[in-house]
Amino acid sequence: MTQNFAATHLSNEQWAAVDAAIDQLAAALEPALVALSLDQRQRVVKMGDGSEAFCRTALDVIVENAELMPRNFDIDEMRRDLASHDALNTRVVRLTRLLEKAHHTDMALGSDAMVAALEGYTFLKAAGKHEGVDALKKLLGKRFEGNGRKAVVEPATV
């Protein structure tokens, strides 16, 4: 094979350990995770990078002026929301990086397999004449049906 981007492969036991770790992560996070509907995601007030500083400063100002706040304003809940946001965001960054590498590895593995399949198919087409693989070549060739150049259709003249 002329290409081998991903040469390390996990054993079934290692995949089982990965699955167990994902299950453990899901179980640990599940109590704190929420699912928002499409409508909620569109309507919710979002805290972006610029708004984050505003929220932190607002908390400081609110804490310093707690006596001006209505009794039902829960400063501690706001503090917990920001702390949980920070903690979750740290994990989201780590998971995003890991997921991106997983996507890259998936792409590399698929590419390695496709290149090997194409090389094998090319070899079978060239070397497999009269070797009893005609039906198999035809089966493999179905992948490429319809991939040729399209005939140019001239417009009819009236």
Results as ranks from 00 to 15, higher is better:
residue 113 A to Q: 05
residue 140 L to I: 01
residue 111 S to Y: 05
residue 85 H to L: 14
residue 96 T to P: 06
residue 121 Y to W: 05
residue 97 R to W: 10
residue 59 L to W: 06
residue 36 L to N: 03
residue 46 K to V: 09
residue 156 A to V: 14
residue 71 R to G: 14
residue 85 H to S: 10
residue 79 R to E: 07
residue 32 A to F: 10
residue 63 V to E: 13
residue 133 V to Y: 08
residue 111 S to N: 07
residue 128 G to Y: 02
residue 129 K to N: 08
residue 92 V to R: 08
residue 115 V to M: 07
residue 36 L to H: 10
residue 44 V to P: 06
residue 153 V to Y: 04
residue 64 E to S: 15
residue 125 K to I: 07
residue 143 R to N: 08
residue 137 K to L: 11
residue 42 Q to W: 08
residue 156 A to R: 13
residue 37 S to T: 10
residue 70 P to D: 02
residue 122 T to F: 09
residue 110 G to M: 01
residue 119 E to T: 07
residue 61 V to P: 00
residue 70 P to V: 07
residue 86 D to T: 14
residue 109 L to I: 03
residue 74 D to N: 15
residue 131 E to F: 10
residue 92 V to E: 13
residue 39 D to N: 15
residue 92 V to H: 10
residue 107 M to S: 00
residue 135 A to I: 04
residue 141 G to N: 14
residue 100 E to D: 04
residue 90 T to M: 11
residue 90 T to N: 13
residue 30 E to R: 09
residue 38 L to K: 02
residue 99 L to R: 09
residue 51 S to Y: 12
residue 122 T to A: 15
residue 112 D to H: 01
residue 44 V to L: 14
residue 155 P to E: 05
residue 96 T to A: 12
residue 40 Q to T: 00
residue 157 T to R: 00
residue 148 G to T: 02
residue 57 T to A: 12
residue 132 G to P: 02
residue 69 M to R: 06
residue 104 H to R: 11
residue 70 P to G: 09
residue 100 E to Y: 04
residue 43 R to Y: 02
residue 110 G to F: 04
residue 109 L to E: 03
residue 85 H to C: 07
residue 99 L to T: 01
residue 61 V to N: 11
